[in-house]
Design a protein around this nucleic acid. Sequence first.
DNA 1: ATTAGTTTGTGAACTAATTCACAAGCGCCA
DNA 2: TGGCGCTTGTGAATTAGTTCACAAACTAAT
Lengths: 208, 208
Amino acid sequence: MKRIAESTVRRLSLYLSFLEGIDRQGLKTISSDELARLGGTTSAQVRKDLSLFGSFGKRGLGYSVPELSGKLREILGLGKQWRVCIIGAGKIGAALARYRGFAERGFNVTAVYDSDEAKIGKRWENLTVRPISELEKDATKQDFDIAVVATPAENTPAVAKQVVRAGIKAILNFAPVQLSVPSDVTVRNVNMAMELEGLSFALSNRGE
Amino acid sequence: MKRIAESTVRRLSLYLSFLEGIDRQGLKTISSDELARLGGTTSAQVRKDLSLFGSFGKRGLGYSVPELSGKLREILGLGKQWRVCIIGAGKIGAALARYRGFAERGFNVTAVYDSDEAKIGKRWENLTVRPISELEKDATKQDFDIAVVATPAENTPAVAKQVVRAGIKAILNFAPVQLSVPSDVTVRNVNMAMELEGLSFALSNRGE
DNA sequence: ATTAGTTTGTGAACTAATTCACAAGCGCCA
DNA sequence: TGGCGCTTGTGAATTAGTTCACAAACTAAT
Ligand SMILES: NC(=O)c1ccc[n+]([C@@H]2O[C@H](COP(=O)([O-])OP(=O)(O)OC[C@H]3O[C@@H](n4cnc5c(N)ncnc54)[C@H](O)[C@@H]3O)[C@@H](O)[C@H]2O)c1
Ligand SMILES: NC(=O)c1ccc[n+]([C@@H]2O[C@H](COP(=O)([O-])OP(=O)(O)OC[C@H]3O[C@@H](n4cnc5c(N)ncnc54)[C@H](O)[C@@H]3O)[C@@H](O)[C@H]2O)c1
């Protein structure tokens, strides 16, 4: 299969969320044009994105909402349940662990780790905070798919090393540092300071 | 000035954070090549990004770390202090309000809003949660620059309308919905479900 | 003062992503 | 059955973004 751009994957994810809304409204079909309007893009873009994976629509009619949802879920790998661990039982970790939106999409938080003695052993929702030193051992049994890393920036490179050693192949990183990992490990960064700086730039350069 | 791509702004932001690290290490100059290695890009990219705004380096030497930091801060509009309000005093809102990393970069959270009677009036750090209905009135006095929106998806379009009516020109949106706002308002989305789906896609399509 | 060794800044070349534009397919109706 | 209105799927054209490649500028060493 040809290489798919990250921007394409982001849009697919967006289309899926729109389709779920449309489905709740009870509509049966949708055109590339409507999908484009919802996503702030063009109908050609929508059709091109989808055409990378097959042809799912009916000419003259559009796309069947449930069918396209299903295809997108399949493309995005949402058919299975993913096992997620959260590392760093702090403020962000707490918000994420308690967020129901993830499980709804098949991302199940099955463990939380921290290095702080004061936090280890505490109950967190239906989980107990475990010592980070046990991550590697636990991983052989639990087989985590994704690690969500929410530790202080200075410790995060070391944490990433442990995650890699534990054999986890995907990391969602909230610390404002660039992680260096082997090429078979995928990292996505959520860097809020960077987003705010993007807004700052936009505010500072309006009308130029 | 010519249009600057969002990807460029993200990289500038990244360079700045590297420069701050380098500065703490006490190094005085850095080459485009080293900066590129830190950011996982190429030296030509670094130089091209910077050349969009001027020429800040010395041939044969590289860039002065404090000078380039200063220039980047200026470019990104980090010279001033920004007034930020958080809307939605829930799990994510709480994590953000308590995060010190923002103020360090000039983003000062000066108010928190919610619609829940049970939360209104409560103290949050050095702030008191205010009723969202007062946002518009408060904005005329406080003159917020940026609204961080962390409300449930279903209420968020309405919240965005209120933010726009309050005259705020930049929104950082955490709800998994696409906001439609006038063209003079800039929106950045942080959509964690989308990031996880990106990882899911990567895990599902390795080696193809 | 000259030379050797670096590293910038930037047009030109290239690659990737988006948009155009239209033939072809489908449903509906007469 | 044929024609009309609509919408897809996709090569071609265009636009945007990245990388190449090299002259120019600077330091340090002799
Ligand atoms: N709080 C926010 O709103 C926010 C916003 C943007 C970015 N971030 C980033 O997210 C990360 C976490 O932020 P936070 O506010 O939740 O911090 P926090 O201090 O509340 O939590 C960090 C947790 O990580 C744990 N920890 C430290 N070292 C560890 C290690 N080696 N292994 C395992 N656990 C370890 C700490 O014990 C603590 O419980 C930071 O990198 C921060 O910059 C946070
Ligand atoms: N918690 C997470 O880790 C997480 C992760 C990803 C995305 N999100 C998204 O962030 C948003 C907030 O999530 P959360 O977990 O903090 O939810 P939450 O329920 O803890 O908090 C939401 C808050 O918004 C308030 N609110 C509701 N309607 C409002 C209105 N019209 N005006 C002002 N305030 C209003 C509620 O009273 C509540 O205090 C949601 O859209 C969620 O999907 C959260």
